[in-house]
Each structure stands twice: as C-alpha cells, then as structure tokens.
Design a protein around this nucleic acid. Sequence first.
DNA 1: CTAATATCAGGACAACTGATATAT
DNA 2: CATATATCAGTTTTCCTGATATTA
Lengths: 146, 146
Amino acid sequence: MTDTISIAALVAEDLRSLASKLKRKLRAQGHPGNLTASQASVLVRLEKDGQMTTSALARAEGMRPQSMGALIASLEASGLVVGMPDPSDGRQTILSLTEDCRAMIAEGRAARQDWLTRRIDATLSAEEQAQVHAAIVLLQRLVEED
Amino acid sequence: MTDTISIAALVAEDLRSLASKLKRKLRAQGHPGNLTASQASVLVRLEKDGQMTTSALARAEGMRPQSMGALIASLEASGLVVGMPDPSDGRQTILSLTEDCRAMIAEGRAARQDWLTRRIDATLSAEEQAQVHAAIVLLQRLVEED
DNA sequence: CTAATATCAGGACAACTGATATAT
DNA sequence: CATATATCAGTTTTCCTGATATTA
C-alpha cells in the first residue's frame, strides 16, 4: 500500500468544496420568508437549549458576540425571538423563542417548505438520507469547540 | 410512529448549520499559505478535468463568470494557474495549473498541512472517515446543476 | 446581427476587528 | 479596578448584478 495520500485529505478537499457550493446555493435560493443558515442554526439551538444570552449563543455557534448581536436583531425584527432583561444581571438579555416561532417549528412548516429539505427529499432515498444524517453527526465534531 | 417530521427536514437543518460553522472555522483558521475553499475547489477541478476557460469553470462551480474571473486572477497572482490565449478563439483564455502547483498537489503537501485535514484525522477514525466520504458523495448530488 | 466571452464598476451580505458604555 | 455583556462603527471577504468591449 502506498498510503501516501490519506483519506482525510480527500475528505477535506471534498468537504471544503461542498460547503462552499452549498452556501452559494442556499444564498442563491434567496430567503423570501426563509431563513439564512445562521439564523436557522440559532433558532434550533434556542429551541433545544432553552433560553440563552447573546454571548452564550455566540460561544455556542462559534462566532463573535457582535455578529450574533446583529443576527439576533434580525430575528427579533421578524418576531421569531424575544429578549427580556435578566432580573439578576442588568447586563444580560435573556433570549427565547416567541410562541409564533415555536408554533412554526412544531408544525414543521418552516422546515418542510424549505428549499434544502425539498432538494434532499428529491435527490436522496430514505436510506441515503439516514446515511448522510449519521455522517453529519460525525462532522459536527469537527466544528465543535476549538 | 408519528412520522410527522421527515428526516429530510432534520438533515437539512443540521446540514445548513454545519456548512455555516465549517465555513466560519475555515476562515478563522486564516490561510497563511493555505487556500480558500473556492480556490481549492477550482484547483482540484483544473487538475481533474484539465484545461478549462473561465466561463467553463464558472459553470462547473456554479458561480458567475465575473466571480470566477476574480478568483482566477488571485490564483494567477499566486503563480498556481496560468492562462494562454486560445489560438482558435480569440475571446477565450485557456487556463491550466502551473508546474509548481502540480508539484505541490503531487507531494500532497498542500492538503497535508491543511487545517481541516489535520482536524479530520484527529477527530475521526479511519472507518468514520470512510463513512463521511460516502456521505459527501451523496451530498454532492444536492449542489450539482440546478 | 446575435451569441458568447471576459472584464470593469458598483452593491449586498455576513462575518470580522476595534472602541465604548454599562453593570458585576 | 477588573471582568463580562452588549452595542456602535468601520472593514474585509465573497459573491452578486449591471454595463461594456471584443470576437465568433
């Protein structure tokens, strides 16, 4: 076995390329009513982990508090997130999903009407979707923490 | 089984989030000598498919000719790509990898020193890497064509 | 003349960095 | 005073759209 080129290098190449193209595609689809990738990611986290502050979200998502602040502002403007002052710490604002947002998630409407979801259903079999799902769980390790 | 929420919606959510975080991480790592995702993607395609024009590359990568033009200009400035006028069609410029670039790829140095490659090797077992690789092949279908 | 190629110019967007006000 | 949170302002990056010159 030559073993000169690791599979990791191949995976890295393809993954890098895939991430770029996927982001371009997502942006090209525009978001009339849809959400950007970052916005969706924040909503999912808020739903999973409950109430959080801007800074906590920024740490969790791996971005700067300032960037997260702008992102949150847009979600508040869309009525998907509300902020309440922390009674015990005047610096912080506790963020949580609005009822509208929870209802939307519960119905699955947001996800179902989503371009990427439709694309996945149209392109991959159920078995393949499961396979991809398993791989994504593995890949999430790569981007966690530092 | 309620079956109300499709696995496609779950995959879409995670995939969207993953793509965002991965791109942020890659940018945060900077590129002292490294390449951006788009640049690497173009080089891989040029190596695989041989000589191409700016427009052909743009179509293949799913971006506009103008964007690809700028990307190519940066690669030319780095001495990784050279352009030669097409003798049979004065409008076109045939692009190809320089010898330096081919040598770099052949040695595998570029890929090996890459942050993402190291990260994959450090985080995933060989078996998991193969699993991810298979999933990426499936996902490439999502971003191909329109 | 119509279509394709490439490039110039300007714009949008999401992230970044730096600086600042406020609360602990 | 030192630390943490949040926000204001400006910059960078990467892609976009529109307009133009050139060649087929």
